[in-house]
Design a protein around this nucleic acid. Sequence first.
DNA 1: ACGAGTCATTGACACGTGTCACTCACCCGA
DNA 2: TCGGGTGAGTGACACGTGTCAATGACTCGT
Lengths: 348, 348
Amino acid sequence: MSQSIEQPADGTRDRTPARAVPTSADVARLAGVSRATVSYVLNNTSAVRISEPTRKRVREAAQELGYVPHAAARSLRAGHSRMVLLPAAHVPVGPLYSRFLNDLQWALRRLDYTVVQYGSIGLDPEDAARAWAELRPVAVVSTGEVEVTPAAVDILKRSGVKAVISVGTRPSGGTHSLVLDQPRVGRVAAEHLIATGRRRIGVVVPEEPGLEMFSAPRLEGARTAAGAVGATVVPLPLAYTEESAGELAARWPELGLDAVFGYNDEYAMLLMRALQDAGVDVPGATAVVGADDLLLGRLLRPRLSTVRIDMVLGGELAALVDGAVNGTADPVGGRSLLDSRVIRRESS
Amino acid sequence: MSQSIEQPADGTRDRTPARAVPTSADVARLAGVSRATVSYVLNNTSAVRISEPTRKRVREAAQELGYVPHAAARSLRAGHSRMVLLPAAHVPVGPLYSRFLNDLQWALRRLDYTVVQYGSIGLDPEDAARAWAELRPVAVVSTGEVEVTPAAVDILKRSGVKAVISVGTRPSGGTHSLVLDQPRVGRVAAEHLIATGRRRIGVVVPEEPGLEMFSAPRLEGARTAAGAVGATVVPLPLAYTEESAGELAARWPELGLDAVFGYNDEYAMLLMRALQDAGVDVPGATAVVGADDLLLGRLLRPRLSTVRIDMVLGGELAALVDGAVNGTADPVGGRSLLDSRVIRRESS
DNA sequence: ACGAGTCATTGACACGTGTCACTCACCCGA
DNA sequence: TCGGGTGAGTGACACGTGTCAATGACTCGT
């Protein structure tokens, strides 16, 4: 793709020669009133009455100067902010998860929170927590990767954070934990394969770094399901390349597997194609199941069976955050939720 | 997927009964020194010498109280922040673009910037700019969707923003614009199809909202390429569902197209499958080209031809931001760049 | 013994805002 | 005429930090 950089024409470049940014004091001066009055007018404070002519003068002065309040000063004075900190994951998460994050951001935004992404590079959990605490967010929503230890939670709480919410594979101490039941994904997949008569089940484990958080519990879930009926589970390391898939497929006869859970629709599609190219019949010789129910999975032949994951909606999580901040939340332990379930197509 | 909410055990719940968060004054009091000394010690100010015993007392006091500086107060005093504002797009962008955004965030983080996502809901450009300006960011990197008008740029600059960078389809006035040459994507695709003897070219236009920003210029690029040699371009509205693709495929004979550019690998795969199911020979009767060079595109048969887009690296853009902030940047107009080019596989 | 010079530390201000308590002018009723 | 009430606005403080100029205490050379 062609790209080009364009810099501002020199004419407009320094039309603003280091002019200081206007403050409410400047507005007050221009309007001929006190700074307090400016604050009252611009914030529409109802407890104080200001005459209409004065209001108008203030508004016009603010307009003319292009005055914009300073959020930091405001929240410093107020003693609290409406910032939600979102420790960012540096991993190539799937489309489902990234869509969830995007939705979450927008839902929070709609509730008038400011979302701050914050990647913590190579810091241990407590140092990361200290870095986060500097921003004095009102809530921290950790979406995995960065572990939130109890000590880290304590640091955050002590800095005024109202709610620490961790959405991950297991509950963290002292936080409102939203547990995404990853093992269940592997379990239902394995159960489905077993129900169709399979006994030696491969489970793809992506080699891409950062995905163990998801892949390990899924593998474990498959193991428990298999263990219950004496079936076998074999972990299959796989990189997201055609070569890696080809090599794995070449070893297929010696592995003696009659089914495989592909971790993902993407990895499953990759592997299924490699198997077919290697002459393995799907689903005759080996059944294949993915996860995420991507539309693209329906385009291959046979159509890919998959585990449909009903991810919690971004809006729901945002509401939980809001509730936790206000203290009104805590929809207690229950909150029985959507299942992940198998959608059988043709590959299994 | 099963999910459950867990709230903190009541024992640890209010172990901190509204205890105020410690400030540097508290540290000073505990260490028996002045607040200034605390500031000097904790910031390792080199211009002032503090005795080693005192340093130790201060550090221990800070440690004991769990003191964490207040970023807002700090940047208020300093008069500037290191916050980069990233107006968030509420659209389901492709994996390529979202990966680019993720990289950008991490690269900025590595340069010690704080990345703030900010969705502006239904505001006109100037109101949005005012909302952004309240945060007093040092730079704003707009990635499309939200239009940055010259007036908006003025508002931002006036609030102290050092650099406004817009990465999009066309340069915006007064900003450092990074132009992603979307038309070129459509052009090279069309040129390739024409070179293989096709004359009536369909161009998929996704119906999903928010993608016009990409699809319109690509369509336009295809038009110019076709116009140069008297070929025809037909826009093809398509939703990302099997039904929509099926309907479009059913109308295929009457459209009389011998080639189609699918906007995307994903849309192209969807359409190609529908065409095949409708009995259209690919590439015999109709050639298909996608874009993004997704790995999954190589799994279908015939393998999908595609336009490989060498997106600017997140790290490069971050460096540009940093340079613009420091004023050292402006690698002037040139910066000749990577091309988007066709990778021919089997579908064309 | 005394001025000069270094060392360690501190008091005070500024950053930009929100808000409480207070002042001032004015009007009304007795 | 005077006390009290009301409407319109203001002075001053606090939020938590960084940093400059100033203050003592102490040492040293003559």
